[in-house]
């Protein structure tokens, strides 16, 4: 029984860590622009697919992975430059529809550049399961957890200690005030798309050896990442991470103990209940809406 529980927990944490990375991407862009970027899942796909094709071309992981992340970041920057920037001043819903258009466009592009098949990626360090307390974990899952932790620490440092990071944080709190003290708000927006695209790509690369990847893998992961970001509280870094982990664990626990057919439904019910009591998610900004 307890070994079973440990297994569910380990699985939940691994899945949750991926959701957390995607959720962080949502939150970073939301902070800079108040836009929900529905193309976030496509960054996940680009990371995975680019790594697959680069390593199929003979590049070692040490080269293929950074290149894939850079590629995704460039796509993120291009999205900001050519789609979000020109629509400056449009309503938030319009911007959301633009990102939905972008996600369809990127999926179509990936289908043409690559193909429609599923691709496997070799695990970074072998695939011999490691036993832990009667359960097992894949070395790749340790990579997922380790890299997620490292990224969370790096982001904490970035937003807390660097000038650019602080500028981004300031912009999220009050755009106008940030502009007044001389922060280049457009630059912040630009960087935020690059950064969250890179985060998405990392998630896509980490998970690909476990799940395989394909041109439309971003749809579901994007959706779950959005759910995690909302559960944690939009715009909150801690919230994104906690939201991701809670969602991942909730899913595996319901699959294990309740009903695997309704596990996603159960996860969404949990989110609805949380929102009912905490309308801004677990760690979202509280307080009145500005009039």
């Amino acid at each position: 029984m307890s070994a079973q529980f440990v297994q569910y927990l380990l699985t939940g944490l691994t899945v949750g860590a991926i959701y957390a990375l995607v959720a962080l991407g949502f939150s970073i862009i939301f902070n800079a622009s108040h836009v929900i970027n529905f193309a976030q899942g496509e960054f996940v796909m680009i990371g995975g697919m680019a790594t697959v094709s680069l390593s199929a071309a003979g590049l070692p992981y040490l080269l293929a992975i950074p290149l894939a992340i850079v590629a995704a970041a460039l796509v993120g920057l291009a999205l900001e430059k050519f789609a979000v920037e020109p629509a400056r001043g449009a309503s938030v819903v319009t911007l959301i529809i633009i990102t939905i258009g972008a996600s369809i466009f990127l999926r179509g592009l990936a289908m043409v550049i690559w193909d429609k098949r599923f691709h496997a990626l070799k695990p970074f360090t072998g695939d011999t399961p490691i036993p832990i307390g009667g359960a097992t974990i894949l070395p790749q899952s340790l990579w997922v957890l380790g890299v997620t932790l490292a990224i969370v620490l790096a982001l904490t440092w970035f937003f807390g200690r660097t000038l650019l990071g602080k500028a981004m944080l300031a912009t999220s709190h009050n755009r106008l005030a940030a502009q007044l003290v001389g922060i280049n708000v457009r630059m912040v927006l630009f960087v935020s798309f690059g950064l969250s695209a890179a985060l998405g790509a990392v998630a896509g690369i980490l998970i690909a050896p476990i799940t395989t990847t394909s041109y439309d893998v971003g749809v579901m992961l994007g959706l779950k990442g959005f759910a995690a970001a909302i559960l944690g509280g939009l715009g909150s870094g801690v919230g994104a991470v906690v939201g991701g982990l809670v969602l991942g664990i909730a899913e595996t626990m319901s699959a294990g103990y309740l009903s695997s057919a309704y596990k996603d439904a159960i996860a969404f019910v949990i989110i609805l209940v949380v929102l009912f009591f905490l309308p801004s998610g677990l760690f979202g900004k509280r307080g009145g809406e500005r009039v």
Binding site: A83, A87, G101, I104, F105, G108
Partner: peptide, 16 residues
Amino acid sequence: DYEMMVFGAVMMGTMI
């Protein structure tokens, strides 16, 4: 094969 790309581009373009 380009249908999806064109559809996405039309959506983006119109809204921009």
